[in-house]
Design a protein around this nucleic acid. Structure first.
Lengths: 261, 261
DNA sequence: CAAGCATTTCCACTAAGTGGAATTAAGGGG
DNA sequence: CCCCTTAATTCCACTTAGTGGAAATGCTTG
């Protein structure tokens, strides 16, 4: 009767696989190990089912078993898949080197991100530091979409329906402050439409400016530039904004040329 | 009859999930996009099945659809999971900073890796360069186990049965040169047992020296130190080897102390 | 050593998943 | 412009693979 589709509420697809992926997703920075019980709770799955799925994930090399804690942690395979992703990303390949050059030239941080559900995930984040010895790349880090320039630029770049869907999600999650927050988000989106960029300081003394990168047939990305240890000022924001606009235009150009692969 | 276990030849677990993971694994550096047909071929699965599984992976955010090529590519989510893995790795957290310091002190590359099937995958790879501006971290990169110091040190660190299983796999794969290669691998393993480290130059002018890190209840890791643009010499190898042994001992100490979490 | 909690195994049930065949959609000449 | 080839997707009858509640097992703790 049921034809491998439309299981409890879902549209189409494979339930076990979906659940297995959800289990992998339950591991995030801050939760280094998870036991079957905790996974069952977080994912809303029966314990016996989780037990079987985690076993499979161990056999497939995605999880390591930590016997002593009766728990699991993400295995090294996941970073090799992550590495393959970065390697295969045409956008990152095309503009990664340009980002490094731009960071050095302008003496500020340059980042590239895209969405993972309601978070923005960095494909590349080049931290400028006068002492060049410090680490530069933090790929994979997530920041909240509603609160960051990156996220708001992304929202400005996607289709209206998708944007509204996401905004509804934010509303549902943050209980208070929602009204003011959503208004602020919409203001940032307007700013992108008007000026090409938006500026946000969600971290104490960091000023970040971002712009969307929209390409036919690819997910929407967002580029940002940021500076630490500065006071937020409109003048500074618009200076960085103009650098960013110029840089983004150059990126779009390169990407349009390379797109056919 | 069949109780969610022992499907065609397998021991136990969930077939769909296993297949889905295998699909993700089919993406590797060099193959940036894959169509359903090619996936079906590489994974040995029926096309209709692949079609359904890739759809699920897209819905779960692990794959992006590239409509223009009727193909898929890894989505950004996979690097956020990869990031979570690195963040949660107690070994990397404990000795990552030590590795950076050691690299600067000894002026050579320092790497940490573990196994993903028959490949070694870097959790961290710190490339020393007098001009500190160059990139330092290449996490997730894979190198072949049989050919590298890292891989051979790993082999020396694991249980005998597992080692023999892997050696059999290598034999099956590389048609020619097998005998000499396997002998060389065994020589490296003996070297580790005798000297604590093994030295290999699988890249033209690179000398690499590695040692295993064995900890109760964790996968076996391998640490390496390497130098570019040098002629291989036993004197140099043993000098680096002694640095490595000293460093590895310090790491083991720190890790033993931190292990209880 | 017993009691309590958590995880894994068991098992009857059946819906979820499968894969071959049919269908639809996308390039590629003629 | 339309037909033809090739590949992906959908259909659908079949049945096995997966499910989850209950029982059993295995740690841990007082």
């Amino acid at each position: 009767m049921a034809q491998a589709r439309r299981y409890a509420g879902g549209v189409d697809g494979n339930r076990s696989l979906e659940r297995g992926i959800e289990i992998l997703r339950a591991f995030r920075p801050g939760v280094d190990t998870l036991g079957n019980g905790e996974i069952a709770e977080r994912c809303g799955l029966p314990r016996s089912t989780v037990s079987r799925l985690t076993r499979t994930l161990v056999n497939s090399g995605m999880l390591d078993e930590v016997r002593s804690e009766r728990a699991y942690r993400l295995a090294a395979s996941v970073i090799s898949i992550g590495h393959a992703m970065r390697t295969g990303s045409p956008v990152l390949n095309a503009i990664g080197p340009m980002m490094r050059a731009e960071s050095a030239k302008r003496r500020l941080n340059v980042g590239l991100a895209t969405a993972d559900r309601t978070m923005m995930v960095y494909l590349e984040s080049i931290r400028y530091s006068p002492r060049a010895a410090l680490r530069n790349v933090v790929a994979g880090q997530q920041v909240p979409m509603e609160l960051t320039s990156l996220g708001r630029a992304y929202l400005a770049g996607i289709a209206e329906v998708e944007r509204e869907r996401l905004l509804r999600l934010f509303k549902r999650r943050s209980a208070a402050a929602t009204k003011a927050l959503l208004a602020d988000v919409r203001r940032s989106i307007s700013a992108v439409e008007r000026d090409g960029y938006c500026a946000v300081s969600w971290q104490p003394a960091v000023l970040a400016v971002a712009t969307p990168i929209v390409l036919e047939g690819l997910p929407v990305y967002a580029l940002n530039m940021s500076l630490q240890n500065v006071e937020r000022s409109d003048a500074l924001a618009s200076e960085i904004g103009s650098y960013l606009n110029a840089f983004a235009a150059k990126c779009q150009e390169v990407l349009a040329g390379r797109e056919p692969e």
